[in-house]
Design a protein around this nucleic acid. Structure first.
Length: 210
DNA sequence: GCGACAG
DNA sequence: ATCTTGTCGC
């Protein structure tokens, strides 16, 4: 099988980080939002992509991809474990989403190359990383539901927390700008993104019955 | 050297 | 992520 040295993985992250393009996206143009998540049962995994329609506020399409986990979970190298299954499950959708939300960090990462960066660069679709815990970065002062997060004074993401809700960490994966994230998070009211809630639930159901 | 460490 | 009892709160 394949083995990788830590340096090889770091080189791969540095290469992908150079391919990221942070571009402005108009929130009004975002209609189909896709959430991607993965559930596990031992070494088996099931990835689910769920498209949530911003107008109907309901799920418009779903796809699954089952495979075997071929790499362990190592902090800051999650991409090696989940990147390919996520790309495949999104490509399996019959509809091309306007925005992809990934369960994990984007450029808010030691090498600016989190899981959402790999997925976003591979797909060429605006992508955002949404994580439930912080990996790196310093959190600024909360203003409304938002607090900027930066590394060495460079703003790379946002802490989003609606009153009475948990904290979520947003950062660009590709083709969106850091300062676009607040407007995009407002689409679903700053809570946990509905597309990710559905993808999480459906991937868990699928891996359970399989 | 020690601790921290997305999912 | 997954496993997994009881407990707090709406």
């Amino acid at each position: 099988m394949f083995s990788f040295t830590r340096d090889q993985l770091l080189e791969e992250q540095e290469r992908i980080a150079k391919k990221v393009r942070l571009r402005h996206v108009d929130a009004e143009s975002i209609r189909a939002v896709c959430g991607v998540d993965i559930s596990y049962s031992d070494k088996r995994l099931v990835a689910c992509a769920a498209i949530w329609n911003r107008d109907t506020k309901d799920i418009a399409a779903v796809s699954f991809h089952s495979s075997k986990a071929n790499f362990p979970y190592i902090p800051s190298f999650l991409y090696k474990r989940e990147f390919m299954p996520m790309v495949k499950v999104v490509r399996r959708l019959e509809v091309r989403p306007d925005l992809v939300l990934v369960d994990g960090h984007g450029i808010l990462h030691p090498k600016k190359a989190g899981l959402a960066v790999f997925v976003g660069v591979a797909l060429g679709i605006p992508t955002i990383g949404v994580a439930k815990t912080l990996l790196v970065g310093e959190i600024g002062h909360m203003k409304g539901f938002l607090a900027p997060i930066s590394i060495k004074s460079e703003r790379l993401g946002w802490l989003v927390q609606k009153e009475g809700s948990r904290k979520y960490y947003f950062s660009p994966g590709n083709l969106v700008r850091v300062d676009d994230l607040p407007m995009l998070a407002s689409i679903w009211g700053y809570g946990y993104p509905p597309p990710l809630t559905h993808a999480d639930k459906m991937s868990r159901e699928k891996v359970y019955q399989q």
